[in-house]
Design a binder for these strands. Structure first.
Length: 506
RNA sequence: GGGUCGCUAGCUCAGCGGUAGAGCACUCGGCUUUUAACCGAUUGGUCUUGGGUUCGAAUCCCAGGCGACCCA
């Protein structure tokens, strides 16, 4: 082989040469299939009893990516990684020569690289150093890798590269694979629980003529044939309620929603939520349901309700603390908003406790919410339901049955972050119309997070929606909590990043 | 939007005004019990981009790009 250097381009060229050599020898570097008898984990489990130095004649077939090569003169050890774990290949020249011919051992040394995907057939033994190994009789190149993997010891740590090339991150960082496996377990557990309770999973439109169901800026797109602007959904709420009107009494949708807002450790422009609607239920029922869903998920992935998160221990054992927004704010700041007469007094009280950005608050309720977000939220580490929100920030929630100016709504906070939001849903179509028209006025006045009136939704309500409890849970944040991940980008496989090499626009 | 930090070999990092380095990976040679194998020899660079200062810039200054964290 030619004397080659070691830049990325040269490494790649060398490996392309190796692939061609394989082809010349009648082996495709890109195989069609492989008959595998065992995964690595199954072998480790099944032959756990083998003592060091002990061998058995059982013939097995494995496949996976070469993660490490340790080559001696006439003996080599490869670490093979598959979806389940790793298994060592014990490759001695004599056995391979018997199985495949004279050149096979030299080819193994010169034509395989870390990163290649290999199939191997052989028998089992535990080496004298105690490593379960497949004593390889024959091997097959299944996929020749052209690009070198990151440093075998330090791995890939550059966060930008980890996000941009998640496939590399997944190959070399086992804990990343583990996080995404847990994510799948969580969504599966939630679906299983809800299905068992008689809920049905439905799918509602992502492309909508009017964004609604939340206060957020939408993404805008365009349908060519209809020649119309469309929005990507910011919530699934308004369509799920239409289904409740239609007679489905227990529905949920677990899916992607899109909000055209900033990016942070807690926000990605597209993220996953679950919304659940149950007829004849109110927000108290939804609290119990929230506890059930989240504890089911926690038990599924962690097997316990006392979970570690960034150095703290969170106790998810229900029932969780319930506190009204008024009481929570009073506890932390000493301000009793029930005693405040007007907006000016409310703003003064808020400023006195260090709350900022009150300019946009035009009602006492909005001041209350601002004070809550700035002073109370960060203190809610253990799971806490905060109840009874101001009506003006809750346009889809039913008026509180006994507290004027408030609605029957709760949000769930854990580790200082909102994890769920729920109402006794507003079913009065005339009240709903007024609330949406107020939102539309805000939109007209320039509020980019407000939306127009969804007339068809109001029409649906006018046909009559049963009393209904609704609940939304942020799946990404729940996965963060249950996988001890500090950033939402750790639980979204392909988080949105600005493309590399874009030249300055604006 | 503001602040701080980062960007040097495929990966992980040093170098901070005077000839661009190390470890791992790669290539070659040796080696039948390794698991960050080992030993020896090579090879590998638009130092994020563009300007500027300087006899001389990876290093200092200005502007841009991308990212991380904190604040709003």
């Amino acid at each position: 082989m030619a004397d080659v250097g070691a830049t990325g381009a040269e490494i790649r060229a060398t490996r392309i040469e190796k692939a061609k050599t394989l082809q010349v020898q009648g082996m495709t570097p890109y195989a069609y299939r492989w008959e595998r008898t065992h995964t690595a984990a199954v072998l480790q489990e099944k032959y756990a009893h083998l003592a060091a130095g002990e061998a058995v004649g059982d013939r097995v077939s494995v496949a996976g990516r070469i993660m490490a090569r340790r080559i001696f003169g006439k003996l080599a050890f490869f670490t093979l990684q598959d979806d389940s774990g790793t298994i060592q290949l014990y490759l001695d020249k004599q056995t391979i020569t018997q199985g495949m011919g004279e050149a096979a051992f030299a080819d193994l040394k010169h034509l395989t690289d870390v990163g290649d995907i290999l199939g191997a057939v052989g028998t089992l033994k535990r080496t004298e150093k105690g490593e379960l190994s497949v004593v390889v009789e024959s091997y097959t190149m299944l996929t020749k890798s052209l690009l070198p993997l990151p440093d075998k010891w330090h791995g890939l740590t550059d966060v930008e590269k980890r996000y941009r090339q998640r496939y590399v991150d997944l190959i070399v960082n086992p804990q990343v694979r583990d996080t995404f496996r847990k994510r799948a377990l969580i969504t599966a557990a939630i679906r299983r629980y809800l299905n068992e309770q008689g809920f049905i999973e439905v799918e509602t439109p992502v492309l909508q003529t009017e964004a609604g169901g939340a206060e957020a800026r939408p993404f805008i797109t365009y349908h060519n044939t209809l020649e119309m602007q469309l929005y990507l959904r910011i919530a699934t709420e308004l369509h799920l309620k239409r289904l409740v009107v239609g007679g489905f009494e227990k529905v949920y949708e677990l899916g992607r929603i899109f909000r055209n807002e900033g990016i942070s450790t807690k926000h990605n422009p597209e993220f996953t939520s679950i919304e659940v609607y149950q007829a004849y239920a109110d927000y108290h029922d939804m609290m119990a349901l929230t506890e059930a869903i989240i504890t089911t998920a926690a038990k599924e992935v962690l097997g316990t309700l006392k979970i570690p998160y960034q150095g703290q221990t969170i106790d998810l054992t229900p029932p969780w603390r319930r506190v009204t927004m008024y009481d929570a704010v009073a506890e932390v700041t000493g301000i009793d908003f029930r005693q405040l007469g007007d907006l000016t007094a409310a703003k003064q009280a808020a400023q006195k406790v260090g709350v900022k950005d009150l300019d946009a608050c035009d009602t006492i309720g909005r001041v209350l919410n601002e004070v809550f977000e700035q002073t109370v939220e960060p203190t809610l580490i253990q799971p806490t339901f905060v109840l009874d929100y101001p009506v003006e920030i809750s346009p889809l929630a039913k008026a509180h049955r006994s507290q004027p100016g408030l609605v029957e709504r709760f949000e769930l906070f854990i580790v200082g972050r909102e994890h769920a939001n729920s109402f006794s849903e507003l079913t009065d179509p005339l009240d709903q119309r007024q609330r949406l028209e107020e939102q539309a006025r805000r939109k007209a006045a320039g509020d980019l997070e407000a939306h127009g009136v969804d007339e068809d939704f109001l029409t649906a309500l006018e046909y009559g929606m049963p009393p209904t409890g609704g609940l939304g849970i942020g799946i990404d944040r729940l996965v963060m909590l249950l996988t001890d991940s500090p950033s939402i980008r750790d639980v979204i496989a392909f988080p949105l990043l600005r493309p590399e090499g874009t030249t300055g626009q604006l």
